[in-house]
Amino acid sequence: MTLQFQYSTLTQSEDVELLGSILDQCFLAQPGNSAAYINKVGMENLRIIRQSEQIVGGLATIPMGQWYGGQRVPMMGIAAVGIAPQYRGTGAAIALMQHTLNEIYAQGIPISALYPATQRLYRKAGYEQAGNRCSWEIPTASIQIREQSLPLQPVVPIDLEVFYDLYQKQAKLINGNLDRHSFIWQQIIHSSENERVYAYLIGTGDRPQGYAILSQHEKEDKTFLLIRDWVALTSAAAQSFWSFVANHRSQIDQVRWRGAAIDVLRLLLPEQTTTIKSMQTWLLRVVDVTKALEKRGYPSGLQAELHLEVQDDLIAENNSRFILSVSQGQGEVTKGGTGELKLHIRELAPLYTSLFTPYQLQLTGRLEATETALDTAAQVFAGVSPWMPDFF
């Protein structure tokens, strides 16, 4: 089925409007919005699939990185996957994904992540649930934190470079957080005609300890403060963040922010008045088993050897046995071994990101292992539950 499709990079400017029209229809966007999106992401990052020279769909590839075990792993984000309605069900979508993954593997990028509109398609391509993105909400009046030990200084005009280093210091400690593409940073400060984005450094100019980027909104007679991005590197910064937000209580009814499913910011609050407004689960695909395992970080005091047997129906080089040797926080991979822990490439994703333990994955029936291998894998992949604040 895949042989009837031709896969390529978007190179012709006249094709931008054609692909944009397909994506507008797929995502219920206003006419022209997707073409504008393509230009923001960059034509060089768009991939298209044709049948008989006719564009039938495409997607965006966004080169980034993700942090796992304190180490940056190169990652290709996949976004805006769309197929024209008349070509759905023909195999065009899975062909598009398979071609893209083969290209990512050839580029030497170890992992790929995306937000799915449907899991079934991406599971066929080897993706699986790997982390969460939660939107939290709290009544402003219930925050009740008054002490603010650090000043907050407005950043006017907003200079994103001010925030890069602070963000990276926090992100590297959290499994799944992005090493962001410039497109993601621009999305954070993008505003519509009727809104304004505000940015504040937490701490002094010579020693900032965090930041908050926010906007104010009104909907259905309710006002809310949207925290578009935040960093708190110290307890004083976290306390000052909440105090600053609480000071909006005279005009703002609700505060919304993005965090983990079990969010540490909630621990500072006097009562459990927060609720999850929405939660999305992103998927990950291990594209190159050897590189993915070697790029990731591991518990620094652990010395262990894990024998894996991976099944991958798409990328033959992954369909093999591997020995992962962990020492001093780093991993080394060689081919071979006894294959004491057997799993599909899909199930490797939530194990790799620390979303689920090997014991939990065993319940799915798609992971088989000896007790020794289960214990070893639990230690090797122990870590912070993965999440990211960003959508792409």
Results as ranks from 00 to 15, higher is better:
Val162Glu: 08
Phe27Thr: 13
Gln98Glu: 05
His99Gln: 05
Cys26Asn: 09
Val197Met: 07
Arg133Ile: 15
Ser327Glu: 03
Leu150Pro: 13
Ile143His: 07
Ser112Arg: 10
Arg180Ala: 03
Ser325Gln: 02
Tyr298Glu: 04
Leu268Trp: 11
Ala349Glu: 11
Leu160Trp: 10
Leu324Glu: 01
Lys295Ser: 10
Ile262Arg: 01
Val73His: 08
Val231Trp: 13
Val264Cys: 01
Glu53His: 09
Thr338Glu: 00
Val380Cys: 03
Trp242Arg: 04
Gln280Asp: 00
Tyr164Val: 13
Glu340Thr: 12
Ser192His: 15
Ser8Lys: 06
Ala93Trp: 11
Pro208Gly: 01
Glu193Tyr: 11
Val56Lys: 03
His307Gly: 06
Ala113His: 07
Pro154Gly: 00
Asp24Thr: 10
Leu18Asp: 04
Gly32Gln: 01
Ile38Pro: 02
Ser34Asn: 02
Gln170His: 08
Phe183Thr: 04
Arg249Ile: 12
Val287Glu: 02
Ala141Phe: 15
Gly210Asp: 04
Ser243Lys: 09
Ser142Gln: 13
Ala232Asn: 09
Ile202Tyr: 04
Ser325Cys: 10
Pro139Thr: 02
Glu368Ala: 12
Gln86Val: 15
Leu284Trp: 03
Pro63Cys: 10
Gln4Leu: 08
Asp375Pro: 13
Leu233His: 06
Glu103Trp: 08
Val156Met: 10
Lys40Tyr: 10
Phe5Thr: 08
Pro389Trp: 09
Glu220Trp: 15
Lys222Thr: 14
